[in-house]
Design a protein around this nucleic acid. Structure first.
Length: 876
RNA sequence: GGGAUAUUAGCUCAGUUGGUUUAGAGCGCUGCCUUGACAGGGCAGAGGUCACCGGUUCGAAUCCAGUAUAUCCCA
């Protein structure tokens, strides 16, 4: 059989993915086994795979595949998010290219376009996840806007409304003038921007006096309805009760007093624009001021903007400051750092805007969710530090604005039957609404034609917060077999950036609607950054193309590369070199298999070295398996991978294979061969969750396998007893091997030339390992001596001393120097140990075990010093 | 402005209730190695006053207080 020396992932990955799909290994249905469930954080339907997804989904796949191997009924539910703002923006842009304006379309027409767009371009990301190897149950693919999820959302909205938790309010909201919709507080990003602080003079009515105010937004003066001073500020005492005149529009406005004004800031005097600032709104309500909205929905000026009508606010800012300056109202400007809210999606500067919106009362809803995470073990966060973030938000929660002025989403099921503020009903469908409306209005003549449904759609998160339930139809059919079996789910893997948007809200929803947590553990991954610590983003162009990476390094290589640098919760600095490391590892495993496969097997007795080596490896494997289980239990995925990496590379490839390797072109005994194959298969099982493609490929190369014997559904190794004596024995032997190799190096003795080694066995070390040492260092014989050997190079391991006679003169000076250096170190070490032991308080207070360790250290060091001193004597 | 988290080798990170040698790993770096699994490899080696300043303790990278710096969240 001819196996290529390099592993070529491109040739095998699609093949095995198809094989897995064909045999339906990823599909899950409820059965007797313990379920293991993950719901995917649904990527945006518009999305393409980026580094964040790759990390996130690799971790989910590792967890899912491991659970499957452990005999659990693993179910990883995939899906997508309709991402109302982002998707609607894309569809609007696409239509614009075709010369179609959204405003010319009806809602139904627009939605038709949006669905067409979704069907054509959406969901690319799901195919990309397959390339990455994700073992999702694709038959369960859900969409936050499909019929089932739509119905769930509507049902929940009505339920919450009927519980009195949803209300309609005229509130100041974050308005995105570009998308022309409301944003929740969480969707606003504050950025520091250098701006100007304008000092403006207002005339005082009926006098020549003037008052100077400072503002960052001169264009809003046309909406001013008051000037505010601090009652404790003596500088403005004379203005009390007077009125001021707004420049340009010459409106007369009152001068009010309120302690809200910061005396130190600007001039200590504030203009009040209730329609365009949240604080001014509060002042306006308190002092019963008029509210004048001067903007259109796209943040251009309306008729209150006078000759600026139709112009954008930023254009107006420039122009009006010029006009103010020309007319002597502008005193001066100053540089000023300003925090400006911008839209997460469109990057537009947010306008505070008053409008009718739907809100969800959060105060009582959060209570069980706080308890579930913080005051009990119901839900665990990994890493734990994010519990603080969670607490902070939950304890300061504000009502959730759930309405969006968009069409792409679930339409709010509120139906208006009149023009009064409360002339509406909320119902799951128009028939129910009509019945309710008849009752509420006392008008039996109403028909469905008299009802008008609210135009707004719901926030996307109002559908994704139901995800762990809705994917199992748990809302429309709350007692169905699937939701009872799979819910609550086990693990959620997501980024800490959506802890409020999504994680917290799912927890709230879980307790509210099913009286049960949505998941047991939340694993927060870090954000993927580039080497310069910058966030990866499309606009920076610093995000590598995920598919190209897979093409270049193989999915397994990329998976390993991502995981190697991703300690839980820490941001990870992605470096393409790590994928190379992953690819190299794949190749190493491949060659570890190729070597064994190339051996000719014969019916021979098993050599001692092989027997010992295999026994040792089995213990080492078991020890590592324990480590791995421990890492997994703490969600230390990258540590688990590193343990396997070292096991396979160092212990299996570098040590075990070298120990059992037959002489060149000689056959191997069958016992060893069978054992090493079995060992290799166990390795593959540990590797499979991390590197599914390569491992399945090798697994199927080892033997013909039926579909029932595929690696993907094999059995995770069980922990057995570890023989620590074997492990310690090898560690010692390894040090001896290293010593011999070092001498070979320094003296340039080629590996081909056999050496003879003598040992002064002060430490009474077992001879068992000598066969292994000889094989790995090409030593013909290890002889035991009673005294130091003359004219030989030496090295020491613990209190044992090893001698290698070499041809030619020994540099005695150099040998002495080397020993003296070692002696000095050991003496220094001994001193530090003795210091501890001679300290009475240490001996009295430290636990016995610690003292025993220290005494052992002392004895070892003393023995070593004795050995070293003897060597010195014999050399001089 | 308020809060959280961090600061350990060139880089990325471990270091679990203070005590397993005088602090570890992976990568990188340096040197040597071309026939026989793998140069995508092997072997060996260098590299750190654990941010700083105090304190608690028999003992501190680890606990406490302060300082500096960085990142994130909130306003």
């Amino acid at each position: 059989m001819d196996i290529p020396s390099k592993y070529e992932p491109q040739n095998v990955e699609n093949h095995w993915y198809d094989y897995w799909m064909k045999h339906n290994y990823f599909h899950s249905t409820p059965d007797e086994r313990e379920p293991y469930t993950i719901v995917i954080p649904p990527p945006n339907v518009t999305g393409v795979l980026h580094m964040g997804h790759m990390l996130n989904n690799t971790i989910q796949d590792v967890l899912t595949r491991r659970a499957r191997l452990m005999g659990k009924n693993a179910c990883w539910v995939p899906g997508m998010d309709h991402a109302s703002i982002a998707t609607e923006a894309k569809v609007v842009a696409k239509l614009k290219e075709q010369g179609i304006n959204k405003s010319d379309l009806t809602r139904d027409e627009f939605l038709k376009h949006a669905w067409a767009w979704t069907d054509e371009y959406g969901g690319v990301i799901l195919d990309q996840l397959k390339k990455l190897g994700c073992s999702c149950d694709w038959e369960r693919t859900a969409f936050t806007l499909d019929d089932e999820r739509y119905a769930s959302v509507i049902k929940i909205f009505v339920d919450l409304y009927n519980k009195g938790l949803i209300y309609r309010g005229y509130r100041m909201v974050n308005w995105d003038p570009e998308a022309q919709t409301t944003l929740s507080d969480e969707e606003v990003i504050y950025e520091e921007k250098q701006g100007l602080l304008y000092y403006l003079e207002y005339k005082i009515e009926g006098s020549d006096e003037k008052v100077t105010i400072a503002t960052t937004r001169p264009e809003t003066i046309l909406g001013d309805t008051a000037i505010c001073i601090n009652p404790n500020d003596d500088r403005f005492r004379h203005l009390r009760g007077k009125k001021a005149i707004v420049p340009i529009c010459n409106r007369v406005i009152p001068i009010i007093e309120d302690e809200y004004v910061d005396i130190e800031f600007g001039t200590g005097c504030l203009k009040v624009t209730p329609a365009h600032d949240i604080n001014d709104k509060a002042l306006g309500e308190k002092h019963k001021l008029e509210t004048i909205d001067i903007f259109n929905a796209d943040a251009t000026m309306n008729s209150f903007g006078m000759h600026y009508e139709g112009k954008d606010r930023f254009v107006v800012r420039k122009e009006i400051s010029k006009e103010l300056e020309e007319n002597g109202f502008l005193v001066k400007t100053e540089q000023h750092m300003n925090k400006v809210g911008t839209s997460e999606r469109t990057k537009a500067v947010i306008e505070p805007r008053l409008s009718d919106q739907w809100f969800l009362k959060m105060e009582d809803l959060v209570k069980p969710a706080i308890k579930g995470v913080l005051d009990s073990d119901d839900i665990n966060f990994f890493p734990k530090k994010f519990e603080n973030t969670y607490r902070h938000w939950m304890e300061n929660i504000r009502d959730w604005n759930v309405s969006r002025q968009l069409w792409w989403g679930q339409q709010i099921p509120a139906y208006y039957f009149g023009d009064g503020e409360n002339d509406f009903v909320v119902a799951e469908n128009i028939e129910d609404a009509l019945a309710l409306a008849k009752e509420k209005s006392n008008n039996q003549q109403l028909t469905t034609d008299d009802l008008r449904q609210d135009e707004d759609a719901l926030d996307t998160w109002f559908s994704s917060w139901l995800w762990p339930m809705s994917v199992f139809n748990g809302i429309t059919d709350p007692d169905n077999e699937e939701v009872n079996y799979y819910y609550p789910t086990n693990d959620l893997v997501t980024g800490p950036d959506i802890i409020f948007f999504w994680v917290a809200r799912m927890i709230i929803a879980g307790y509210e609607f099913r009286d049960e947590k949505p998941f047991k553990n939340v694993y927060f991954t870090g954000l993927v950054r580039d080497k310069q610590r910058r966030k990866m983003s499309k606009s920076l162009g610093n995000s590598p193309d995920a598919l190209k990476l897979i093409e270049k390094y193989g999915a397994d290589g990329v998976r390993v590369g991502m995981l190697l640098c991703s300690a839980a919760g820490n941001d990870l600095m992605f470096d393409e070199d790590l994928c190379q490391q992953g690819k190299n590892f794949a190749n190493k495993i491949w060659n570890g298999f190729r070597l064994v496969k190339g051996w000719e097997v014969a019916d021979l007795p098993q050599p001692e070295a092989s027997k010992l080596g295999i026994a040792w490896y089995q213990s080492k494997f078991n020890q590592t398996l324990l480590e791995i289980e421990d890492h997994f239990s703490k969600y230390r995925i990258s540590d688990a991978l590193m343990s396997i990496y070292k096991l396979v590379w160092d212990d299996y490839s570098s040590s075990l294979l070298e120990i059992i390797k037959p002489a060149y072109q000689k056959p191997i005994d069958k016992t060893t061969f069978d054992q090493v194959i079995q060992i290799f298969e166990q390795n593959l099982k540990l590797l499979h969750p991390f590197m599914p493609f390569l491992t399945e490929e090798v697994w199927q190369h080892i033997a013909e396998r039926t579909p029932e014997e595929a690696l993907v559904i094999s059995k995770w190794p069980a922990v057995t007893a570890t023989n620590s004596e074997l492990i310690a024995g090898f560690e010692f032997a390894d040090e001896v091997i290293s010593g011999i190799r070092t001498i070979r190096k320094t003296k340039n003795i080629p590996m081909k030339e056999a050496l003879e080694v003598s040992v002064l066995n002060e430490g009474k070390i077992s001879e068992d390992w000598d066969v292994v040492i000889c094989k790995l260092t090409n030593v013909s014989e290890i002889s035991y001596v009673d005294a130091a050997v003359d004219s030989a190079l030496s090295f020491r391991v613990k209190s044992n001393e090893y001698f290698i006679p070499v041809g030619g003169a020994i540099d005695v000076e150099a040998e002495i120097a080397k020993i003296q250096e070692e002696l000095e170190y050991t003496k220094g070490f001994l001193t530090s140990v003795q210091k501890k032991l001679s300290n009475e308080r240490f001996v009295n207070n430290a636990p016995d075990q610690v003292i025993a360790i220290e005494r052992k250290k002392q004895a070892d060091a003393e023995a070593k010093i004795e050995t070293l001193e003897k060597s010195l004597v014999s050399l001089s």
